[in-house]
Write a protein that binds this DNA or RNA. Structure first.
Lengths: 199, 199, 199, 199
DNA sequence: TATGAATGAGTATTCATTCAT
DNA sequence: GATGAATGAATACTCATTCAT
């Protein structure tokens, strides 16, 4: 399948993918400015010009990783919209599933999530979008009468984003809790609140 | 003969404070690596050696800003510990006050908060500390019977930190909401949950 | 297509060697602190980054030159140890040869000798080593009965080092005397002394 | 005697002398380029402008120290010229005394000797002068018939300078030998040579 | 597809020196 | 006689990027 005599048997695509994956790791661990092209190529076993064969610049490869995260997240949230007219009791489960999807995606794409959701300046934009999407979902639930009507759904959406952000970093990435676990605890808290129920 | 308007002979403390404040702004807006010593001194109207007269290095001035934030936050949270034995109905108010304190501090120290709570690597450490302190508070409330006992207070503490983080950035800093407002909405949500009350 | 005259793509080894040789000259003439990397690269017709392509730092290239001198001198003195059991009359000639070797080496490596034997702090260490080696040689001659036994051979070794040092600088480097000449005059003086022989 | 209210009771001359002495120490230990004006004044307990009150520049204070050494050595060697017509047997003693004078001077002025005889570029000039003076002495001895006539007295003078240099550094300064001791060993060696006397 | 060799442009830091008081 | 405050001028070193092959 491959051609004879290629160094390390790498097809172009392979080199490209390798660089991309190493870059993701570096960017995720060290951030944009601390990541050096020289380190990436060294780890990939190629030379600097090779890097520029596949990527226009350091910024370009960073963008590519960002976009990949951004697109993945968008695809995910697009299809997780709560469908109306479903009965009240299944609501928690449906929300839990949506959140679980997000956490699973983050968990399976740690490096790229670190870059796109935590380290980059553009992370702000992405979080903003996510918050908007969540807010829209919430509002439609309100219309269906699930939630209290006197709450600022934009605010709650932001709170959810902050929640996702923080728990991803402190519980999910370190492997302390599983996606489903985190999701259901969030849902429980947000739906019922913390107060002990008294007669 | 007065103290005003001198260039030469300006009180050293003044120059130092000026540099510190400009640096805070630069670091807050551009992050550590994009902030240039040359820019700071230019904006302060002094030369580079003057910078090194007051700060050992770029990193040192950054640390000083970080420490100032860190100390401010610590002082604040130290004294806001909920006191036991207070009646149930005042609980929301007391929590609200604690949160308001934090948001007010953040609001009055935007630049330094951006640095110490959002941009720096050490931000993680600070958030971790904050989460711990919140968790301790929550646990003592649990003992007093205020809250449900089946919840993971470490997790809720992290959620609160994420909440604070996110709302600071999206509601407080842009001036969309006031500290008290944000605090009370958070408390309302976390205590009661979102579900519409049905008999 | 040949190797000559290329600017771009010149063999890296060539660039490296050129920098090394120019650096030797600069260090020898101006000392460590007065030697500027910028001057070295300028004279070599390359840019500063090229310098750092081949040498880790200014200090590193200096060390390399030092080591090269140090090693050369060590190799030389290692094999010039006087062999025992040779007859008395050939002693002067053998010593002369040893000294001639040193002077020849110094003469053929002026710059690097200036650095390693005269200008650097490490020069002291190297001279110390040389003195020790000379002392050992002298002591074995004493055992063979060649020399007077009431002399402090450590002291004489140091005197010889001082002698070598001074004559290298004042007679050898300026081209006033040849290695052999200097060596034999030293031997004559040290063996016989200055007093006119009187019956 | 002094005026009231002077800081640390230092008269100008005292400050000057203090700076001079500390500078001597610094220059002697670290060399010209590694010695910082800021360190000197710090150790002297004064500010940088004070330094410039007494010395035109860093180079000027260095020169002053050099000159002091230079003059001291010159005064010494001026009067130590061997007088003619003295009997043959006292020659060794007279030479020994001359050398002892030099070593004593060096020993009593270590810092300034390090500067003027070892570290500075001008050291070469001074050594050259010393060698000339020694050569003149030797030549007049030759005329008196003390020494062998077939020797290059310029060369021997340089050898003596090298000897003085080396023994000062390795035996005198570390306190291993006393001035007289060193001097007499030198004289013994140079007058009689090393060969064991055989019938 | 890949590389050996080189560079443009920047960037923190240092140090001797000097006003104005 | 002395200082608080400031600076002009350098200098080593780094990094993304690009030819020519």
């Amino acid at each position: 399948m491959g051609k004879r005599g290629r160094k390390k048997g790498a097809s172009g695509e392979q080199s490209r993918a390798l660089l991309l994956s190493i870059a993701a790791e570096e960017f995720a661990n060290k951030g944009y400015y601390q990541t050096k092209v020289s380190t990436i190529v060294q780890r990939a076993g190629v030379t600097q010009p090779t890097f520029y064969l596949y990527f226009k610049s350091k910024e370009a490869i960073y963008q590519e990783l960002m976009d990949s995260f951004s697109k993945g997240l968008f695809d995910l949230t697009s299809k997780s919209r709560l469908e109306p007219g479903i009965d009240f009791n299944s609501l928690p489960l449906r929300i839990t599933k949506g959140l679980t999807g997000i956490f699973t995606f983050f968990s399976e794409n740690q490096n790229v999530t670190r870059i796109g959701f935590f380290n980059s300046l553009e992370a702000e934009v992405i979080k903003k979008q996510l918050a908007l999407q969540i807010r829209d979902n919430l509002i439609s639930e309100v219309k269906n009468g699930y939630f209290q009507t006197d709450m600022d759904m934009g605010l709650i959406a932001e709170i959810l984003v902050g929640t996702i952000e923080r728990l991803t970093l402190t519980k999910l990435f370190p492997g302390i809790k599983e996606p489903e676990e985190i999701a259901s605890e969030i849902v429980h808290l947000f739906l019922n609140g913390m107060l002990s129920k008294r007669e």
